[in-house]
Design a protein around this nucleic acid. Structure first.
Length: 440
RNA sequence: GCGCCCAUCGUCUAUCGGUCAGGACAUCAGGUUUUCAUCCUGGUAAGCGGGGUUCGACUCCCCGUGGGCGCGCCA
C-alpha cells in the first residue's frame, strides 16, 4: 500500500470553552483516517468569534490534543489571520454575480454580503458514512457570508480555508449535514473541487440525550482529572460509532490505525458508558510496565501534602503493590495511609470490624506476638495465625480487623504485604492505637 | 411548523437475504483470591410497530411511532 500524501483532513475547533468529548472524538477520527491513509492531519483554530474566543480555551484545545497524542502534521492555522482571503473570496463572488449586497434592515448596520444559492438546482452528495444525501432547491435559502460590519461568516471562512489548506475529506459532526449543501455550493461558486464528506454521529449522555452544559463528564479535561489514562480514553472513544469489524476492543494505536475506515462508522448516535471506559482504563493501567505506571500515577498525583520529598522510594513500592487493582489514577488518592502517620479511619469500617466484643484484646495479643518476631512475611503471618488460634478464631478472621486498624479501610492489597510495606513501628503504633481507642 | 437523518440485549457493537442473532461492559450465580480488585466458568438479556418484495428478512421498499439535527449578520 502506497501512502497517499495528498489526503488532507483537519480538526477545526473554535476556542470558546472546554473541549467537548464529541469534538475530540471528531479529532480522533480525523487523525485515525489520516494515519490510515498515509495522509496529513491538520489543525485550524476557528477563532473568528472575537467575543467568545479566549486564550484559555485555545490552551484547553492544545492541552487536550497533546494529552491524547493528536499532534497535527503542520503548524495550526488561525482563521483570524485569514480575513483578507475570506473577504477577497466574497468580492470575487460579488463580481461574478454569485453574491449580492443587501441591507437586511433592522440592524441599521448597513450592507452585508449574501450568497445566492443556485436557483432550481437540487443538491446532493455522497456522504461516506450516511450515504447519498439530497436537498431540494426550494428548501435551500440564500445566506449571509459577510456581515454588515465587514467580518466573514463561518460558512465562507470555513470553505475558503478548507480550499486553502487543500482539505480532501471533511470529517465532522453530523450537526453539520445541513450546512454541507451550502458549503458545496460555495465550493462550486469559487471554482474549487468539492471534498468528500463524512458526518459522524453524535455522542449522547447517559440519559440518551444530547449533552448540555449541565452534564458532567462532557469535556476532555474532566476525564483527565478523574484519572483516566489518555490511551484508554482514545481507545474507548474510537469505539463509539466505529468498530474494527471483529471482536477486538482493546486495540493499540497502531491496530486502530490499521483497521480504521470511515465506511465502518455507524450513522446512529451512541451513548457514553462510563463503566466500560473505567473497565478499559483498568486494563490499560494493569497492562503498563511498573515504570510507566509509576510515571502516570506520579504525574496524576502531583505533589500533595501526603507525598512530600523523601517519599519517592515508598511511592514506587506502593505503586507496585496496588497497580493491578487500580481502576483510575484517581485511586491514588486512597493511598494516603501509606504516607501519613495515622490512617483516616472510615467510620463504617470501624463500626463493623473493630467495635466488637474482644477485638481490642485480640489486636493487643497480635501486637505482643509481632513485637518478639522478625518482621518478614512469614513471621507476620505466623503471628497473625497464632493470635487467631489463641482467641479461638478461624484462620483469616483477624485479617479484616487488622486491615482496618492499619489502613482505616476494608480493601487493599494482601494484609501481610501491606504490613511489610508499612514497617514494624508504624504497624504496631496503629494496632495499638486501634486497640485502645477504637475498639469496643 | 417545514426539511433532513437515525432505530439489534440496560449500554457499546457484529451481522452487508439463509446465523441456535455473535462479542464486550454492566448485571446475576458459582470458583480462585484467608479483604478488595483481578482472573476463570456459567446464566439472564435484543432486531420499535404495521404493511409489502422474496422460496426466505434484523438486513431491501413504504407507512407509522419514537429520537436527533437543521431552519442566525453563532460556529
Amino acid at each position: 500500500m502506497f501512502p497517499n500524501m495528498s489526503t488532507r483532513v483537519r480538526f477545526a475547533p473554535s476556542p470558546t470553552g472546554q473541549v467537548h468529548i464529541g469534538n475530540i472524538r471528531a479529532a480522533i477520527f480525523n487523525w485515525l483516517f489520516a494515519r490510515h491513509e498515509g495522509g496529513r492531519f491538520l489543525l485550524r483554530i476557528e477563532d473568528t468569534d472575537r467575543e467568545r474566543s479566549t486564550p484559555e480555551a485555545l490552551e484547553a484545545v492544545m492541552a487536550a490534543m497533546n494529552w491524547l497524542g493528536l499532534e497535527p502534521d503542520e503548524p495550526p492555522l488561525f482563521q483570524s489571520t485569514r480575513t483578507d482571503a475570506h473577504i477577497a473570496a466574497a468580492e470575487q463572488l460579488l463580481s461574478n454575480g454569485l453574491a449580492f449586497k443587501e441591507d437586511k434592515g433592522g440592524t441599521g448596520k448597513g450592507d452585508c454580503v449574501i450568497f445566492r444559492m443556485p436557483a432550481g438546482t437540487d443538491s446532493e452528495f455522497d456522504d461516506i458514512i450516511k450515504g447519498r444525501l439530497t436537498k431540494k432547491a426550494e428548501d435551500m435559502k440564500d445566506f449571509v457570508i459577510v456581515r454588515s460590519d465587514g467580518s466573514p461568516v463561518f460558512h465562507l471562512a470555513n470553505v475558503v480555508d478548507d480550499i486553502f489548506m487543500g482539505i480532501t475529506h471533511v470529517i465532522r459532526g453530523d450537526d453539520h449535514v445541513e450546512n454541507t449543501f451550502r458549503h458545496i455550493a460555495l465550493y462550486k461558486a469559487l471554482g474549487a473541487d468539492v471534498p468528500r464528506y463524512a458526518h459522524l454521529p453524535m455522542i449522547v449522555n447517559a440519559q440518551g440525550k444530547p449533552y448540555s452544559k449541565r452534564d458532567g463528564d462532557a469535556y476532555v479535561g474532566d476525564f483527565r482529572q478523574k484519572g483516566y489514562y489518555a490511551d484508554a480514553l482514545f481507545n474507548y472513544l474510537s469505539l463509539l460509532g466505529w468498530s474494527p469489524g471483529d471482536d477486538r476492543e482493546q486495540l493499540t494505536r497502531q491496530e486502530l490505525t490499521d483497521a480504521f475506515t470511515l465506511e465502518r462508522v455507524r450513522s446512529s448516535a451512541s451513548q457514553m458508558d462510563l463503566k466500560k471506559l473505567t473497565f478499559l482504563n483498568g486494563r490499560y493501567l494493569a497492562d503498563m510496565s511498573a515504570a510507566d505506571f509509576e510515571t502516570a500515577a506520579s504525574a496524576y498525583a502531583g505533589s500533595p501534602d501526603w507525598l512530600q520529598a523523601g517519599k519517592a522510594a515508598r511511592f514506587s513500592e506502593v505503586c507496585r503493590l496496588l497497580q493491578s487493582r487500580t481502576k483510575t489514577l484517581a485511586d491514588v488518592r486512597e493511598w494516603t495511609y501509606f504516607f501519613d502517620r495515622m490512617p483516616a479511619y472510615e467510620q463504617k469500617a470501624v463500626d463493623k470490624l473493630l467495635r466488637k466484643e474482644g477485638v481490642g484484646v485480640m489486636l493487643s495479643a497480635f501486637v505482643q506476638k509481632l513485637g518478639v518476631v522478625g518482621f518478614d512475611h512469614d513471621s507476620i503471618e505466623s503471628a497473625l495465625r497464632a493470635a487467631e488460634a489463641e482467641a479461638g478464631l478461624k484462620e483469616g478472621k483477624l485479617n479484616q480487623p487488622v486491615r482496618v486498624s492499619i489502613t482505616g479501610i476494608t480493601t487493599g492489597a494482601g494484609i501481610c504485604e501491606t504490613m511489610l510495606l508499612l514497617g514494624k513501628d508504624s504497624v504496631i503504633a496503629r494496632l495499638t492505637h486501634a486497640a485502645t481507642n477504637l475498639c469496643g
